[in-house]
Write a protein that binds this DNA or RNA. Structure first.
Lengths: 192, 192
DNA sequence: CGATTCTTTGAAAACAGTCAATCTGTGTGG
DNA sequence: CCACACAGATTGACTGTTTTCAAAGAATCG
């Protein structure tokens, strides 16, 4: 399982074998079955998680009891609640597996050790974080500027590998649109 | 002008006088008049900017020619297009001053020097970045989960110091709602 | 096969956007 | 100091989009 990660990170950061060994030695391999929670609201998020295989979602539940997907993640993406991880406060979000998944995890403390001891890993991590901030701004922009139909098309263009793996009602939730509306949008589109 | 920054950062990071001097020596003091651009779409963002006084907004213009505010920033907030700063690519966003403003700026390179040479500054910066990621997730959540009216109330609760300083139509733009709708929501509310 | 889970459809109601006109306050130049 | 222009806010009428509710139809999984 670590080999996948090795291949991934070797493209992004120049690491010696020793450094890779160190990263591996602090990692935890885990499997999650479909529907299994990686994090529940109220829990304190303790790990940085890298998805080797599978698909997950991070979502919150509103006070009306409705689920709202904040983001999806698939192979070679990072997952976790950065806020809870950072503050040590209970998370407001849930994370669960949408498919049987394999992940690598590092505790906050061990992750910090890697950041401190391996400069290239630090640079790499900052780049990951910068990119996730950029993509969240893009998401904000599309969410406030596009119509439901445009959002849907933007989504399948931006995440072609996700839209065909997750149920439509979750995409609707992600886009902030009712599932009925999204179903109609999609059918109206295919009939053209 | 640097004194304000000194007071701000001294609360958040333990820095020696030498370190503060170093930070100051690499800083640029600038003033922006109301309506003046700090960054225009197409420019490459070269600086990290700290707002000492005033109010700014970061926004994009859609292909229909409509402005969409991605975020506001006031005293003691950081501003800049992290994406462009990081990638060196032209920015898709604009930043301008909503009030006469005073800022401190550091070039990307000088900022990096500070991160490398001053561990406490590095830790501090990471915390800032983590917080901005967290707040952007919160924004995504409220944007997809709340109605226009709820969004407005959430906004004035979350940013009481901003809503009374910026024009209503910009708040509408920020919330992804037409200004007429927001105007109606607000009046309906005050008449209760 | 039976039970979930997911998607689709219809009809009504709620909601938000658009267009156009008016109103308000602010600041600028003569 | 006034008149004017301008940016911003409001209002009404209308249109269009999206939600909601309810029911039924696929698809998937054990």
């Amino acid at each position: 399982m670590f080999d996948s990660f090795k291949r991934y990170i070797s493209n992004k950061a120049k690491l010696t074998n020793q450094e890779l060994d160190k990263i591996q030695s602090l990692s935890i391999e885990k499997k999650f079955r479909k529907k299994q929670y990686l994090l529940q609201a109220g829990d304190i998020c303790k790990h940085h998680t890298f998805i080797v295989k599978g698909c997950m979602r991070l979502y919150r539940i509103s006070n009306k009891g409705v689920e709202h997907v904040i983001r999806f993640a698939i192979e070679e993406w990072w997952m976790g609640d950065k806020e809870s991880l950072n503050t040590g406060q209970p998370s407001r979000s849930n994370i669960d597996a949408l498919e049987d998944s394999e992940v690598l995890m590092w505790t906050k403390e061990n992750h910090q050790i890697l950041l401190d001891e391996i400069p290239a890993f630090n640079v790499f991590s900052e780049r990951v974080q910068a990119r996730s901030l950029a993509s969240s701004y893009n998401r904000i922009y599309t969410t406030i500027s596009l119509s439901a139909e445009e959002k849907y098309h933007d989504f399948i263009q931006t995440y072609p590998n996700i839209f065909n793996r997750v149920p439509l009602h979750m995409i609707a939730s992600y886009l902030g649109v009712s599932r009925e509306t999204l179903s109609r949008i999609r059918n109206q589109f295919t009939s053209k």
